[in-house]
Design a protein around this nucleic acid. Sequence first.
RNA 1: GGUCGCUUGGCUCAGUUGGUUAGAGCGCGCCGUUCACAUCGGCGAGGUCAGUGGUUCGAAUCCACUAGCGACCACCA
Length: 874
Amino acid sequence: MKPITLAKAYEPAKYESKIYKRWLASGFFNPDNLNLPADAPTYTIILPPPNITDRLHLGHAAMLAIEDLFIRYKRMSGYRTLWLPGTDHAAIATQTVVEKKLKQEAGKSRHDLGREKFLKKVWEFLKATQAIILKQIETMGASLDWSRLAFTLDEPRQAAVKEMFVRLYEAGLLYRGERIVNWCPHCRSTLADDEVEYREQPAELYTFRYDADFPLAIATTRPETKLGDTAVAVNPADPRYKKFIGQTLRANFCGQELNLKIIADRQVVMDFGTGALGVTPAHALADWQLAEANNLPVVKVIDEHGLIREGFGAFSGLTAVAARQAIVAQLRADGLLEREETISNNLSVCYRCGTAIEPLPSRQWFVAVDKPVAQLNNQSLKQAALAAADMGQITFVPERFTKRYWDWMNNLRDWCISRQIWFGHSLPVWYRGEEIYVGRTAPAENGWTQDSDTLDTWFSSSMWTFSTLGWPDNFADGQKQGDLAKYHPTQLMDTGYEIITLWVSRMIMMSLFATGEIPFATVYLHGMVLDKQGKKMSKSKGNGIDPMAMVKLYGADAVRLSLLIGTTPGTDFRVSEDKIAGYRNFTNKFWNIARFILLNINQPQSDLKPPPGQTLADRWILEELAQTITEVDRQLADYNFSRAGEQLEKFTWDSLADWYLEIAKIEGDKGAILNYCLNTLLKLWHPFMPFMTETIWLQIYGQDKLLMVEAWPTADRPERVATADMAVIKELIVGIRAARSANKLEPAQKVKAVLYAGERQALLQAQAELIKNLRTGIGELAIEASGRPLAEAIYSSVGGIEVYLIAAVDAAKEKLRLEKDFVNLEKFITGLEARLANAEFTAKAPPAIIQQETDKLRRAQSDLAKITERLNKL
RNA sequence: GGUCGCUUGGCUCAGUUGGUUAGAGCGCGCCGUUCACAUCGGCGAGGUCAGUGGUUCGAAUCCACUAGCGACCACCA
């Protein structure tokens, strides 16, 4: 029989892509191909789709590692396991990328090309780019069912989105309304509230009067918008302004006639600025709300390009910033500017391009979240989604995020879903004059034009859990069938905590509406990957670690381990190359453990039961392993994969490699136990480091038997060992090791005999003998072992063994140390003497140095004498 | 302003219902290593668990307050 030997070191690059191909060829990524009983429970994760233009970053890699861990764990545990892959069209992000590219390569904007040609460019670009991220996902070892690959903008998803839109419309949950939206003049698109970022920065606050006769002064950071003021708001309790409330005052503001109604509102802060607020309904959300409450006219000042509209004299056509400067200059010239101060202002900017947001009134489509509908048992989307969390039907991990979800849902406003960009899902909406038609297909008659807007990316994302499983075709007549019946609702949604609001809450609402089901049982929120300094990794900062480069250097398994272990749910964590390199060391260590074990097994068996232990060490390692299995299962059930990994690491490196393998070298003949330990460890580690474990498994057991579908180990052992006994056994093993390094230590040999004996009777006899020979008198203690637990017997019989061992070990250590010191000192002295005897040295060296060396020699000689004395005593 | 989180050895972090001597990895020091592995082994130094007060037989852990840091939400124009 040909012995199985592994290469001396693990070289991941040699095996990884081969192994992945082997997995693909097996077909087991697709749950339909698993040989399972019909009633096997399902376990589904739908992959949060990365943007199709993305390159894999460590955040993706972490997500993949986490999800693959659970998928592989559940697959081995007998679940019908589906992990469904996909990509996101990321409308705005993708369009921005292509626009940038167009500008760089051809110097053109999207408007130069026109809609049709531009979209063609986008699709060409996607075709070229989409394969990259998918390939990178494979590199990480993700066991995704590629046969079900989806894209948020592919044909089936377009149909699903259209269907959803129509159904929402028919249910009365969609409406078209004018509202202040967050407009990005650069992207020329509306942004959702949560796509707006805030930047704290200094801003000039101007205090002025509209004209010389105006009785109140107002304060603003945006004087240019004041051209569109239609009211001044004051606090009703403000004594300064009480008398004006209700009046309408005229003013000539920089040549513009304004009719300003003085209104009262409690939200106006009396001690900010002058306590009087110029109300510009068209260009501030709060002002818009004031206008609605007070029936104020709306005057638009700024257009979609961020320029002052027609009808504002010399200011028309200026950018907002230029107009601001012009107006401030004029106010100053007219002596109307009372104050100018720098305050700290929270500027709203576009999360995509960083341009300052221009609030503008605009016609948009909205999802009504507060309107009760029949489909949700006369609850609103908001109520239904809140109820789902309230009933404990969704578990958030960690639990504290439940509250965040709750707070967000409670404050949710109607969701603006139309976007003024070209790339994305088109709205199934057509207009003819004032008529609106919403339907699955275009109206037959002439004269209708389709809405030119596209849908918010999150609209299609919100349908992800069921659109990927064949909704609506698989939901005819409200009955689930096919994949939807089999795999929905899903078990786990793993995503970053930062999009719990953007995404998770909307998935819950949309799924409840479309299928009546909560889309997932558990939401696992992972933290962000930070760099070594604790900064968020980003391309612009250049502090990102490229996972692909790391895989190349250290292997995918090492990268995975570094992202799984040492992390805590919902908490950001730091990753550095050092950490990855550390786990590369571990993978190599594991490889060599396997290598060593294989050298000690005659004929490896893949389905070995735990063999009976012959010695204490055997029982100890089997018990440790069984406990490790239990612990790993427990931790994984709580999503504490980091701790599961740490437990495994501890067992593998400490218990097995550093202790048991050393004992095995002494005791010999451990084939069966080592075989069992290796098999079990390969299985336990597989979800963490699939490539290496599978590589080893295949090298041992041949190409027909894949580790990825082996059964997950159970915590079996031939004989249960009590925890207290474990402590004692560990002590004995420590004794053996110490005895070994102390060379020939008689009594320790006895301990070794104990270990060989294995039998309790033999053990007790050996102990008795040991104790009899002890000088301390402890030997007088009787061993009354019969009928008592091992540990108790040993403890009662001694302190004996312990005291003895400690004394012996200490003495041995001391002796060893002294001997070592002796040898080293002797060498040192010889060297010094030689140097001092060297004529060249004594001639050329400065006297101070010679003196130093002589002193050293003297000290060393006296130390040596002391050591000799002590050695003689031992 | 509101909410949540964090503060543990030089660094990064664990510490699961409060329980003997607070752990790990990296780093550091010393020693070793042709016999699975230097991508290794052994030994060691290093912590008043941010501070104060409280509850308790017992607190890193629970409570209150204080300080520093971070995130999210809202937003004063």
